[in-house]
Design a protein around this nucleic acid. Structure first.
Lengths: 245, 245
DNA sequence: CACGAGTTGAGAGCACTGCTCTCGGATTGG
DNA sequence: CCAATCCGAGAGCAGTGCTCTCAACTCGTG
């Protein structure tokens, strides 16, 4: 963290932190797309060109914000899960995590827009962002896996035998969830694991949609109490997953 | 449509159309936030200031695009529903509409970003956009209402009597769905209507999340076949709504 | 302590953006 | 035909990301 604690290195750390903090503040007020490097330069009372000593480009700054935010959100989810005393109460863990995820997003709308909103025009998130990005969904999958290991099962699934066609295959890139030791404790067959993964992803999709609607103003006036609405949706999702509240 | 078919009025119509078309094209290539009025001016081979004769500001242009896009999407949904011959087959109508909505969004990613993505920084959508914005969810609610009128019912709901607390109230602004004649044919009690409305909104939330994940690149590598995935999710949602496929 | 090497901040400059203003020319309705 | 209106062009302002140069500062080493 501090390889050579020289005055210069220390100043660099401090200023880098200041830039990041200012950028995140402006993220919330101005939005990710309008993040202006000159504006953060004014915030930290430097000339714009000086900021480039710390971040080689606006995109590099965005990437740093992206990783930091993903990690913060993932940690919030993990902490909420860990805070539930009764580890066997999958319903309580599920609700706690979903509440924590929404709470973080509501508290950090700018960061949420950066993470999950419209991609910033000429910017493509580099590989480094993938690992922190999947922390949240991993937490969700872990809860489901624990519940299934304890004997819980999803309700009658419209899966292979249910209505409609064969379920879609989960691509290899989701192996970190599908192949995870999460499911090793369960006595689920491989296709049952795949089914659980799909349900978890679908639940995560719903949660994301919910938060997105709330933060992007698509449910103003349609949902009176967002917190209560989240609770209700969380319970429904848990019921679908068979990890009753 | 053409009150005074003078040469000037005709030219104005044509150029307005050209500007809108160019703007929508740039929407997909550059993104909504980076929509440059000067760029569309170059496209239509005018000087930037001339464009202001047609749209008083960039925001006004955005609003026009917003309304036009909402209407197009809403019409696509309505058309897909209307195209299903067997009006009593709620499952088929549901699947058709969800497919059509996704198809339109995939075909118009720029417009999707404008409609449902991160709000453009200093821009607030005016009232005019509300009516076209709700066309899609109205189509969904109509299908559910028709099915319930025909006797279908949602599966055991974790509602008032189910697990968890009391369901959240739907705010008055959603009256256009809740108070709609959609439900007058059903013999549902008021709270059952509210329950159906909530389920419809939740399904719409999931659909939006799904499309958003796909278009914003949050499921690259995690879902192999987006179309098949949509079908599967649509069937699960229909099953939850009790309008089985 | 001194000095060369590396780091940092400031400033000017380029090309771009949204937007406002003015000015000459074209079109319109009376 | 003519006054009123509309329209396109151009200049200009303040903002943006980014590059370059230059002077000042800090650092490890001799």
């Amino acid at each position: 963290m501090s390889p050579a604690r020289t005055a210069r290195a220390l100043a660099r750390e401090t200023i880098t932190r200041e830039i990041l903090d200012s950028a995140r503040a402006r993220l919330t007020t101005d939005g990710a797309a309008a993040l202006s490097l000159r504006a953060v330069a004014r915030d930290v009372e430097m000339v714009s060109s000086a900021v480039y000593r710390y971040f080689p480009s606006r995109d590099a700054l965005l990437t740093a914000l992206l990783i930091e935010s993903y990690d913060e959100l993932g940690e919030a989810a993990e902490a909420a899960d860990a805070a539930v005393a009764d580890r066997a109460d999958a319903g309580a863990r599920w609700l706690a995590v979903l509440r924590a995820v929404r709470a973080w997003c509501v508290a950090h709308p700018g960061e949420f827009g950066l993470l999950y909103g419209t991609p910033v025009p000429g910017y493509a998130a580099p590989r480094d962002t993938v690992v922190p990005a999947v922390r949240v969904v991993t937490v969700l999958a872990r809860i489901v896996g624990d519940a299934y290991a304890a004997g819980a099962r999803p309700v009658a699934a419209p899966g292979p035998g249910g209505p409609g066609g064969a379920p879609v295959t989960v691509a290899p890139a989701l192996a970190f969830i599908a192949d995870h030791e999460l499911w090793s404790g369960t006595d689920l067959a491989d296709d049952a694991v795949a089914e659980a993964v799909r349900r978890t992803i679908m639940a995560w999709t719903t949660l994301f949609g919910l938060i997105s609607f709330e933060l992007f103003g698509h449910q103003v006036g349609s949902v009176a109490d967002p917190e209560a609405w989240l609770d209700e949706v969380a319970r429904r999702l848990a019921a679908d997953l068979g990890i009753g509240a």
